[in-house]
């Protein structure tokens, strides 16, 4: 495993830690899109089906279980925890996320590497992950007040896929990997969706101002 991949995974893990910190210690999920979080549960459930069919490493299995467990836990907190659920910005979380699921299903049925259950679901999970942040970005744009933890969470989540792109470049050049259009293009789209957010996040950080996205 190369450094970019490890840093990518750690950034992803850290983003979840930051979100759990907000939920568990601040007891708030204000500004967090439940729709995006539900999409992540679907992404992990469909991608990590291979937990039952193929073993890669202890690291791989452990990380998959952590991503599955934490994503389900976060949705549980946002839906059912008696304090946390009251902080959910429901009225602003308006993105039609079913549309993203439908779009990803159609795309995965049309464009995949092999037509079997695991492969199509894996492809679906990549397409859905690429766009899963959209409800969250829309919610941020509607939020007047983006707290630090929420801003950091979204930043880390975006940085993770950007680091994965470097990992793919590295594997292609150094490990003789072939072209892998499906994850690469999905990853590029996913990272590109954050471009605007990255710009305002870094700007607010440089100017030591509170993060605010233009409406």
């Amino acid at each position: 495993m190369n450094l970019f991949r490890l840093l990518g995974d750690m950034t992803h893990l850290l983003s979840i830690v930051v979100l759990l910190l907000k939920i568990r210690t601040v007891k708030s999920c204000a500004g967090i899109s439940l729709k995006t979080q539900e999409l992540y549960v679907i992404v992990f459930l469909t991608r990590y089906l291979d937990l039952f069919t193929k073993y890669y490493s202890v690291y791989n299995t452990a990380m998959k279980l952590v991503f599955l467990g934490t994503s389900i836990g976060i949705v549980w907190y946002m839906r059912y925890h008696k304090v946390v659920k009251q902080t959910y910005s429901k009225d602003e979380d308006t993105f039609k996320h079913y549309f993203l699921i439908l779009l990803s299903i159609i795309l995965a049925l049309l464009i995949h590497r092999a037509f079997d259950v695991i492969e199509v679901l894996w492809t679906f999970s990549l397409y859905l992950e690429a766009v899963a942040i959209l409800p969250q970005l829309v919610l941020l744009q509607k939020s007047r007040n983006i707290d630090t933890l929420t801003g950091d969470y979204v930043f880390l989540l975006g940085a993770y896929r950007a680091l994965y792109i470097l990992n793919w470049v590295y594997r292609f050049l150094m490990e003789n990997h072939k072209f892998r259009w499906i994850p690469w293009i999905s990853g590029l789209v996913q990272t590109a969706l954050y471009a605007d957010f990255f710009y305002y996040y870094i700007k607010s950080w440089k100017n030591r101002e509170k993060l605010k996205l233009p409406a």
């Binding site: 291979d50 193929k54 791989n60 092999a114 894996w122 990997h177 072939k178 892998r180």
Partner: peptide, 10 residues
């Protein structure tokens, strides 16, 4: 050549 590369990622 169905090597599992990329699938070993998260």
């Amino acid at each position: 050549d169905e090597e599992p590369e990329v699938h070993d990622e998260l």
